[in-house]
Amino acid sequence: MNSLYIINNPQKLSEALPFIGENDGILLIEDAVVLATSDSAQTHCKNQFALEEDLIARGVKDKSQASWELVDYPRFVELTLTFDKSITWL
């Protein structure tokens, strides 16, 4: 089963990474979107997303890296349906 890992705290991505498969998904939301603005958060995961509204709110959308696909809220909902389950890793 493929899981969508929803991360809202920048410190938590590294904690969850050992359990994330390359075919799982990572979606950065809230404060965690800052990870999409630098290439420090490189992962082995093929499906990397960041919530566009949260980047815009923080004025850093233009700094987002190409390795993180920007998604809006409707696409966020779609992602939760695409993956078998969502895991909000708090």
Binding site: S3, F19, K85, I87
Partner: peptide
């Protein structure tokens, strides 16, 4: 970590 990874992958719900 791999044991945990596969248990998480094969569970219906994962809660933190």
């Amino acid at each position: 970590a791999d044991v945990i990874k596969s248990r998480i992958a094969n569970s219906d719900f994962v809660l933190t």
